[in-house]
Write a protein that binds this DNA or RNA. Structure first.
Ligand SMILES: NC(=O)c1ccc[n+]([C@@H]2O[C@H](COP(=O)([O-])OP(=O)(O)OC[C@H]3O[C@@H](n4cnc5c(N)ncnc54)[C@H](O)[C@@H]3O)[C@@H](O)[C@H]2O)c1
Ligand SMILES: NC(=O)c1ccc[n+]([C@@H]2O[C@H](COP(=O)([O-])OP(=O)(O)OC[C@H]3O[C@@H](n4cnc5c(N)ncnc54)[C@H](O)[C@@H]3O)[C@@H](O)[C@H]2O)c1
Lengths: 218, 218
DNA sequence: TTTCATTAAAGAAAAATTCCTTTAATGATT
DNA sequence: AATCATTAAAGGAATTTTTCTTTAATGAAA
């Protein structure tokens, strides 16, 4: 079948999912001063097949050296670049509750290219406060701020029943991607990217394995 | 090919991943008083193919009625049961920092069958406190408590560099499954179930789509 | 210098997953 | 009562992803 625009994204999603872990591993090796790392080593760390690693890495610019492996420093650079972690993207977070606060606290996000510039809520007890130096505004101020700052991503951490309302708001003010942490599935125009992160799916997988006495890592 | 022990887990992992969202949707309909729901409706909500829904649901006990769909009440019950959300499992959480606290606050977990009975940390400023009625102990008290309580799962929310230490501890005290929120990949015996939940993978997927001007939901 | 073992890379095969097609059932409409 | 349209279910095709196999390169060891 001829696919015109779909051919753009050739990198399999599972590959992209694994890459941040490759990166984290490589960064660790870099700190320890290791110069080269083989696909076998990475595969062993990840509990996957070595050819999976080479295939995944073949999507990036890096080339390995036979009998030696990949240069750790180059690997870190190439993966960071490839994953878009080197350019900072600005984001708004809506719902500065338990999960929202945790994300605001997470320095890992800024390390991986995401800069949360402001948070929003409706609860007067949190509005006006600063969480990890990020101010919490009332949701009504959303408009003014999104214009000023160059914000392309919205993070939704409100209760599930309010997810759609918040999503609509985000779309209205020109946000391009939404990271949705609620179990609710939101409806947005086709050109808006939505990434649903449902923690409970992971729970379901664990329970399934537990009840079937299985022993996989993945 | 003949598969002896591997045949036990016949349910595809992607199916299990989708099920909690079906459940959340069905629960919403139940609250609204809707009696039946068709695969088309569910698929529309999830932005997937309707046959995917029927195939997924075919792994459970529920049978749909032609021209009507699935009974919402039965669907909720069957999915909850199937996903193991009806039996409560006890868990320990180690690392009562930002993310750990968020999880301790999350009532969704107990709704989905996970009961965090105690938290552990090394930071004296949090030890002794209660987060959402769950007490934070010093990590050294881990042993005594895991014996007393019937704890089968360990949740790791410490900094990545301490993940392995904590995992070793959890294994030593008989925990059967580990839910690992750090980007580090931990090494455990084969019979221990590990579920890695790396939020940064989701970030990588968003960035990839953003940079390729794609427009998928998934 | 020669042999050996380890490795990346590429391509093929296998497996898993999704998507499509067909069939039969049945509530709603006429 | 007859027709129509919607739906679940089952099977198979297509696609995607993983795993296996082969090849060539090269550092280390003999
Ligand atoms: N806490 C967790 O660890 C966790 C885990 C998995 C999923 N989640 C999901 O994340 C979401 C949030 O969970 P939480 O535990 O942080 O809940 P929470 O109640 O602690 O926080 C929600 C926040 O959103 C705010 N809010 C509500 N409606 C709003 C609106 N329309 N606009 C702006 N702000 C609004 C509330 O004032 C509150 O501060 C839920 O959907 C939950 O299922 C949370
Ligand atoms: N905060 C987030 O939203 C977020 C998002 C994605 C991933 N993560 C990951 O989750 C992990 C924790 O992140 P965080 O933001 O909660 O960090 P944090 O620093 O807020 O919390 C870590 C906690 O672990 C405790 N700790 C450290 N070593 C310990 C040990 N050996 N035993 C027991 N407790 C110990 C610390 O005292 C601290 O309270 C990190 O690996 C991070 O990458 C966090």
């Amino acid at each position: 079948m001829v696919q015109s625009s779909k051919k753009i994204q050739v990198v399999p999603e599972p590959t992209i999912r694994r890459m941040p872990s490759y990166l984290a591993f490589a960064e660790g090796l870099l700190r320890k001063g290791q110069q080269f790392v083989s696909s076998t080593q990475i595969a062993n760390y990840m509990n996957i097949d070595p050819t999976q690693v080479t295939k995944d890495l073949s999507y990036t610019a890096i080339v390995g050296k036979t009998r030696v492996g990949y240069e750790v420093k180059a690997l870190v650079e190439v993966l960071s670049e490839f994953l878009g972690f080197t350019v900072m993207d600005n984001a708004f977070l809506v719902g500065a509750g338990s999960l929202g606060s945790a994300l605001l606290h997470d320095s890992g996000l800024s390390h991986f290219g995401l800069n949360i510039v402001a948070a929003f809520d409706v609860n007067s007890s949190t509005i006006g406060k600063k969480i990890n130096d990020i101010e919490v505004f009332h949701i009504d101020q959303f408009r003014d701020l999104s214009q000023e700052m160059n914000v392309i991503m919205g993070i939704i951490t409100v209760p599930a029943e309010n997810a759609q309302t918040v999503a609509d708001l985000m779309v209205a003010w020109g946000i391009k991607a939404i990271w949705n942490f609620t179990p609710a599935r939101i409806k947005v125009p086709d050109d808006i990217i939505v990434q649903n992160t449902t923690l409970y799916s992971n729970l379901a997988i664990i329970f399934n394995k537990l009840h079937n006495d299985r022993k996989e890592t993945r």
